[in-house]
């Protein structure tokens, strides 16, 4: 998935000379946490709800001397980290985390076309993990070498079940972990088949039959 698939648009952008008090009112009305600040269609800065809420307070991140009647230009962060519509979302997510910021305006050919926030990334992640119809979760650990996943998927296909999604949980030098969502109610039956073929299935757990 790319930024263009998850970004919010149109963007509510404000002019740099808008008084901070007005921006605070607007933020409350629109239920937004970030406002890009634009001049002639170009992004020149960004303010967050924390920037606004700490104006005139003793908060350590408060900008000294800035009052509510001042223009937002005096408060905004600049320059701004921006994303491109064709950026992969994992890259944007890692940038948001690396710079400890909550949103990035999306800019194409110097024009702002949207905004992408950490909430958008989280929503995308939820969609990625929850895709597909009725399915059972199977977790496996495979030797980290070419063809291992292909072999596993072939065996599942021969078992007669559809694979709805495949996620990687970890990838190390010699082992890779995968979570598959497979279209069968009998996950244990499938797990047994996979174990018999030599695969290391970590969910569902192996069960020792108890004596009656």
């Amino acid at each position: 998935m790319l930024v263009r698939d998850i970004m919010t648009r149109p963007v509510v952008a404000i002019a740099p000379d808008m008084p901070i008090d007005d921006v605070i009112v607007l933020m409350g009305q629109r239920q937004l946490r970030h406002f890009p600040i634009a001049e002639d269609g170009r992004v020149v800065g960004i303010v967050s709800d924390r920037d606004l809420r700490t104006v005139g307070s003793a908060h350590p991140k408060s900008r000294p001397g800035v009052k509510g009647s001042d223009p937002v230009r005096d408060l905004m962060s600049a320059p701004v980290w921006t994303a491109h519509p064709l950026d992969p979302i994992d890259e944007v997510a890692s940038l948001l985390r690396a710079h400890a910021i909550g949103a990035m305006p999306v800019v194409e050919e110097e024009e702002m076309v949207g905004i992408v926030t950490s909430s958008d990334c989280l929503d995308a992640l939820i969609r990625m993990t929850g895709v597909g119809g009725a399915a059972t979760r199977i977790e496996v650990e495979l030797p980290n070498r070419p063809g291992e996943l292909a072999g596993l998927l072939t065996l599942i296909a021969e078992h007669g079940a559809d694979v709805a999604s495949v996620l990687t949980t970890r990838s190390e030098l010699d082992v890779a972990g995968f979570v598959l969502r497979v279209g069968t109610i009998d996950g244990r039956g499938l797990a047994l088949t996979l174990r018999e073929a030599g695969y290391e299935v970590t969910w569902p757990p192996e069960r020792t039959t108890e004596e009656a």
Binding site: G130, A134, A135, T136, R137, T184, G187
Partner: peptide, 8 residues
């Protein structure tokens, strides 16, 4: 559903 069919 995190662990068991149908996942909902």
């Amino acid at each position: 559903g995190r662990y068991l069919f149908p996942g909902t």
